[in-house]
Design a protein around this nucleic acid. Structure first.
Lengths: 337, 337
DNA sequence: TTGTAAGCGTTATCAC
DNA sequence: GTGATAACGCTTACAA
């Protein structure tokens, strides 16, 4: 049932129907009412495709992620979806699974679907396909993907990794620790080096020497954290505390430590990064730097929608936004003090 | 850059371009090559909207969820997305957050977007908006939402809750337990009564009396599991094992039990349901009934796409599919034996 | 093998 | 106020 069907039924032209449904002031109240009621009765639903075709915008945004099942990403997407819908936008979701072909296909698909803008919550695509992304010709917001420079269309939003690393470390120092380890992930990610830098900032400020043997590299997952334990303890002056690249690593470390018979947090204090849902459910509950995930999704979406209404030139104004994570103190770093 | 731009450049009609790009055999190899190369050079991207308009299908499916951040749902969506894309379909994601207005808006939006089919991974929408869903006039697959009856368009796919409850309980019986608790969630969900039924099946078969005082109701989350502990232990003959409605409840129960100084699994064996990612990371690692989440997403998508190619009548063939969860034995139910 | 023309469901620009 | 008419980008008979 289309606009024309209603027109026939109401014995008016289809343009009048279009106006009536669009609540145009150009049509008399009488017919407007009549047509709207009729549309309702006939079960009319406007065809978004057709409308987009003439309007030149689809009121749809594309969201590219590596893995939807990643809890961090899922929460960001949640924020994006909610905000988008509150503004009348639909969300087209694509997951790349870190496979190059899918990444390209994803971008191509979004281009074909004529999305009005794109949010990328996936480091890989953001980092590797900047040029490709730019080719869509619509604004792009990178979430937690290091954009070295905002491009013509590309903007970014990310957590302040350095500040987070610093807060985490300061917290441990304040708890009285001086042998604090940083359990890193492979150095290919900018977020890793920034968290490390924050860690060093805090140590320097407190006058604690930075000891490279306290920085151990893992792969950033649960088992990585587990594997890190022996390295923390086998050095001359063992670590009494650890700041981990992320919560999964921290939880792995905790798991190994408890299995080894250590009392936490007395024997080893642990702080993570992210505040994944499970952080509060492990024992001891994990102290961590909370990334405001859904909030980040919300802000990214607002940035994106902002660029859609602003004139082109203004786009270059909001380029790179940094949000701060919040230290959440729980049991793994010591008793409340 | 549209098909007409290419036509002008190639000095052919736009229909020839359309055919060439569609790889029609009606156009000579020569011009086909020439046009395809030209399209490439000019950076042409077909307009999916326009194509849908004439073809009458959008090659897009809608996915309705309550919360994307729910790890179970996120994994199902992962499976859906992957499968959909492998078949050339795009995914429009809507989350209802269990709010009635959003649920209605979601359905209406998908209708406007003219999706070719819908997958609902959200009990509420599936249960409450069946009629509304049917009005979209496209096939709908309900995942783990109890569809009492498949309708004209509505099909369903869900895990075999009764079988799962039975496997879990049998496992505990086999481990030598006779005082086995079922930690339920509120009875409003069909899945709960089915898991309970499976639990009773297993007890009956083993000749163990079903004791109502062993069935405790919680709200199905972490803290619910925690609250359940005292009830399991305060009864005359305390439980030595518990089958929990889901993993979150089980993990809550484990948390409370360990805090109370119990040795697990010696003092209390615990089995969950779902196999959320964290099940293997808690201590002791959780024995559970694994729902094949992404596999379910995949199958739901295949069912949906199946109905899109089949003639209408055949739709009534595949209506309700039940998949079985798999018992995954880990430390929480006892040592390997 | 190619071109012409109609049409998909809208909105927008004209006249009347 | 309302109705023709064109246009958005594409596919597809029907002609040539």
């Amino acid at each position: 049932v289309s606009i024309k069907d209603i027109a026939r039924q109401a014995e008016v032209s289809h343009s009048t129907v279009s106006r009536a449904l669009g609540n145009s002031p150009l049509v008399s109240e009488g017919t407007k009412d009549r047509i709207q009621r009729l549309a309702q009765e006939m079960g009319y639903s406007p065809d978004a495709q057709a409308r987009s075709l003439v309007l030149g915008r689809t009121l749809t945004i594309g969201v590219v992620v590596t893995y939807i099942a990643d809890p961090f990403i899922a929460q960001v997407v949640q924020g994006i979806e909610t905000t988008a819908h509150d503004h009348g936008y639909s969300v087209l979701l694509v997951s790349s699974q870190a496979e190059p072909e899918r990444e390209i296909a994803a971008v191509e698909m979004l281009r074909s679907q004529r999305v009005d803008g794109v949010i990328v919550a996936s480091s890989r695509v953001g980092a590797l396909y900047r040029d490709h992304l730019e080719r869509i010709g619509v604004p792009v917001i990178l979430v937690n993907s290091m954009a070295e420079q905002g491009g013509r269309y590309t903007h970014s939003l990310g957590v302040d990794n350095r500040h987070g690393g610093r807060s985490a470390t300061e917290h441990l120092i304040q708890k009285g620790h001086r042998r604090i380890s940083y359990v890193a992930r492979p150095a290919d990610l900018g977020s890793n080096s920034q968290r490390l830098a924050g860690y060093e900032d805090a140590l320097n400020e407190a006058g604690i020497p930075v000891d490279p043997s306290l920085v151990v590299e893992t792969h950033g997952h649960f088992s990585g954290g587990r594997q890190a334990l022996p390295q923390l303890l086998s050095i001359v002056e063992p670590a009494t505390a650890a700041f981990c690249y992320n919560d999964m690593t921290a939880i792995g470390l905790i798991s190994a430590a408890r299995e080894a018979g250590l009392e936490l947090p007395q024997d080893l204090a642990v702080v993570g990064f992210d505040d994944i849902p499970f952080a509060s459910y492990v024992y001891p509950a994990l102290t961590t730097i909370a990334q405001p995930t859904s909030e980040m999704g919300r802000r990214a979406t607002e940035m994106l929608l902002g660029t859609l209404v602003e004139p082109r030139e203004a786009n270059d104004l909001v380029t790179d936004v940094v949000v701060r994570g919040q230290l959440v103190v729980r049991g793994s770093s010591g008793p409340a003090s």
